[in-house]
Amino acid sequence: MLVTNTERGLFCAPGNFHIDPWKPVDLAVITHAHSDHARRGSRQYVTAEPGGLALQERLGPTARIETLPFGERSLRNGVAVSFHPAGHILGSAQIRVEYRGEVCVISGDYKTEFDGISGRFEPVRCHTFITESTFALPIYRWKPQAEIFLEINDWWRENQQKERTSVLFAYSLGKAQRVLSGLDASSGPIFLHEAVRKFVDVYARAGVILPGIESANAEKIKATRGRALVIAPASADNSPWLRKFGEVSTAFASGWMQVRGPRRRRSLDRGFVLSDHADWDGLLASIEATGAECIRATHGYTAPLVRWLRERGKDADAIKTHFESKNEDVAGDGATAEAEAEPKAP
């Protein structure tokens, strides 16, 4: 195998580099800047060009990061490495690795619906496809984001009628900006939690301009109580900062909201089913489109996906990751695990 699983993460032996390693290595090739894929401490990083700024923000100013435009090949010890849009967040990439005619693609996290800002996912032909499987169960099927944005905007207006501030929890990197892009900014002021704001700045520097945002000073907050919408990471729930907004209605935008249990356990008013991962149909279609005969599933519901593929005659298996109880989000919000909404790995 061109790419194998090691205790530091996925490793390409002939190229002598790791992909999304969870321990420090010499050369780390990174799919995207969520913290379960981009860990600190490696000597050198390579990532897709549109994702460079977010990765720098994640790893700190001292990290050495090299970027490569989408589709452009770079050679490492005779191994051709290239990045291809994954549609997950801004600059997120699948990594294509080719050596002596054998092609392996590591998907990272991906979604098949084009959200307008994260790049358009494109299936890449390969022999081996290492795919994520966060939502690899047929209960997970997404509606088009336009419908979800309508729901969110309606909810915001309903809250305004009841004079409640709308608090929408979303992962700080990716989901928050996607939600922002779908908000009807004419409805009222929008405030961002600091963790979200710093990535909105990153998006702006990368050329993605999002609707007008109010700076959240105490005076303004007071004046706009009951009208404003606040985007914050879930870890900010119940924080003193959030209490400043007076009476609130809370919601969470996540694929996990598809199921009633996780929504109710968080005691949220609403759950919006908006995911940056592929749903069941999206996973199956993407796997098919790569033409791969060998599929390795990682991150999530690996077992059902593997069994499904094997029953259809594919060479499929699961790869264990360091992030066993990984969630759509461990990312944006650091260590405040959102693990509660995470189903047990099957």
């Binding site: 169960l137 047929p138 209960i139 099927r141 598809q258 199921v259 009633r260 249990g261 519901y301 077992a303 059902p304 069994r307 499904w308 029953e311 189903p343 099957p346």
Partner: peptide, 22 residues
Amino acid sequence: PPWLIQECHAAVGDTAETIALL
């Protein structure tokens, strides 16, 4: 297949909801 439905049921925890989602 029935096995996959059971996997879904395990994830959702509720018969009526699982079937409605599927």
